[in-house]
């Protein structure tokens, strides 16, 4: 299998670490799912996490906004440092973490509310804006950023669940950026979508990279190659190889990575 890696115009700005993990381990009950993950994830880049099913990439992603806290029986050790602060420190509030680190899920999950309310819900509750013109502007800006404005501007009162799958997913992205996070986690955001919707989401990701740090889990290696700047290959709860995407796909240094990318296993 041949994979084209998009040549990216690399800007000259120096790399800045946004997320840094140090010996991050995770257990479901007494079964260890992540082993000593240490990674630096760079600001305003798209980092793709790839690997076979059950390799721990989604689990790792959920560690970064403490969504794993919601699963009972999970134990986490090690550090996940964002902006020089370990988010697992006792004085860190997980609600505040999730506010700063947004998440988009595999299955589009708009709330059973109107399109407008879907986007306005969180900013209003967080007190980012008050009801009225401010809120209207934020909703419009967020939906615009998600590339959905032209399609929904006349039907903002309609339920978000009535949109097509791809539109729903972009609504979920709009809803996430309305909270003004710094990092956006995407858990296989296109795996439930058709190819055209997928393409739109990918374009959107490249657009959003200017303002946000994006970490995405994907099953689709072409997608990782197309959109990501950095790629990490996970296997059995460990990071086997992590480098810039070009290197991973064209010159992997570890045999396992090469086998996976060329489709020999996984």
């Amino acid at each position: 299998m041949k994979i084209d890696v998009t040549k990216r115009e690399m800007d000259n700005k120096p790399l800045e670490v946004k997320v840094h993990t140090e010996d991050l381990c995770l257990w479901y009950g007494d079964k260890q799912a992540l082993f000593d993950i240490s990674m630096d994830i760079y600001k305003n880049k798209i980092t793709a996490l790839i690997g076979p099913s059950g390799c721990g990439k989604s689990t790792f992603l959920r560690c970064l906004n403490r969504m794993n806290d919601l699963i009972s029986g999970v134990t986490i050790k090690g550090q996940a440092v964002i902006d020089d602060k370990n988010i697992y420190d006792s004085d860190v509030d997980e609600v505040s973490v999730r506010k700063k680190i947004g998440m988009v899920f595999q299955q589009p999950n708009p709330f059973p509310k109107s399109i407008y309310e879907n986007v306005a819900y969180a900013p209003l509750k967080h007190g980012i804006v008050k009801k009225g013109a401010d809120c209207d502007n934020l909703v419009e800006a967020s939906i615009r950023s998600a590339g959905l404005w032209n399609e929904v501007k006349d039907i903002l009162k309609n339920p978000g669940t009535g949109l097509s799958g791809g539109q729903q997913q972009r609504l979920c992205i709009a809803r996430t950026i309305a909270v003004k996070p710094e990092v956006i986690l995407m858990d296989e955001p296109t795996s439930a979508l058709d190819p055209i919707s997928t393409e739109k989401i990918e374009e959107l990701m490249l657009e959003l990279r200017k303002d946000f740090t994006i970490i995405t889990v994907t099953h689709n290696m072409q997608q990782a190659a197309r959109v990501s700047d950095y790629t990490a290959f996970f296997h059995l709860g460990k990071v086997i190889e992590y480098s810039d995407t070009e290197t991973i796909f064209l010159n992997p240094t570890v045999k396992q990575t090469e086998d996976y990318i060329t489709g020999r296993f996984g």
Partner: peptide, 11 residues
């Protein structure tokens, strides 16, 4: 997934 969607927004 509705609960998760809301919690992930920092609710």
């Amino acid at each position: 997934h509705m609960r998760k969607g809301s919690l992930a927004l920092g609710m």
